[in-house]
Design a binder for these strands. Sequence first.
DNA 1: ATTTTAAAAGCAACTATGTTGCATTAAAAT
DNA 2: ATTTTAATGCAACATAGTTGCTTTTAAAAT
Lengths: 130, 130
Amino acid sequence: MKTTRNTAAKTAVLEIFGKSKTALSHTEIQKQIGDLCDRVTIYRILDRLVNDDIVHKIVNLDGTVKYAKCHHHAQRVHIHNHAHFSCENCLEITCLENVKPSYILPHNYKVNDINFTLSGLCPNCLNSNN
Amino acid sequence: MKTTRNTAAKTAVLEIFGKSKTALSHTEIQKQIGDLCDRVTIYRILDRLVNDDIVHKIVNLDGTVKYAKCHHHAQRVHIHNHAHFSCENCLEITCLENVKPSYILPHNYKVNDINFTLSGLCPNCLNSNN
DNA sequence: ATTTTAAAAGCAACTATGTTGCATTAAAAT
DNA sequence: ATTTTAATGCAACATAGTTGCTTTTAAAAT
Ligand SMILES: [Mn+2]
Ligand SMILES: [Mn+2]
Ligand SMILES: [Zn+2]
Ligand SMILES: [Zn+2]
């Protein structure tokens, strides 16, 4: 069993996630980290955090990849089956933890992971853009 | 109104889509196209086909982007709200045209597009792997 | 407290994917 | 046949992510 270590960089990344209400891309994290660590290190930290079910990965229709903290640890089978909203205007991606899709799958499919992303206009942009 | 033209390259791409039962990446199409046209041309054809609602774009959790023919033209509001299945073993992505997620969104969100991708093991790989 | 060990980081080089500008070609309307 | 402009080719660029290898360092063992 390989142990996971608490490094300065990892702590900084987790702190950034803690402060953010929206999902963050590698680049956005890098901007906040500055030169505290190398950009490769951020990639590796994100990989580890995803592996340890501490953050989850969100892939948008435009190809951008973002990460957000998990708010639902207890479960044994850890699937992020909630929706994500991607605003085409402000480009923010938010977890909609309470929006869970229901669907009926044909037999003989084994689902390990779900990516459910809705794009459009978020409440903020819908109001101001009218 | 700008008109769309039928070129040799576009015809070839459409033919490739016609023959394929699974979704195709730019690279996969390029391999089949050979040197019939430049790789940039394939990108531009795919963009046009997506714009014209002839194919739709699928983004997988591993970041790979694939395209598949649309089988549902008639509708006015053209949203590809069906599920896609991405097999972690054979790496094929298939449209599950009949699997449509239902979900309840909070007020004030305007949805323009949906990306709903399930990853796991497809029926083929589930059988042969165990 | 000191030593050990292997996880994590730094750095450079590389790959993969997608984009842009501009000159040239060719589909299709006239 | 001529005209128009969508589409292509090509080169250069941009961005995101990966890999190999050495060095550093967290934390376990002593
Ligand atoms: Mn989420
Ligand atoms: Mn589809
Ligand atoms: Zn917004
Ligand atoms: Zn499979």
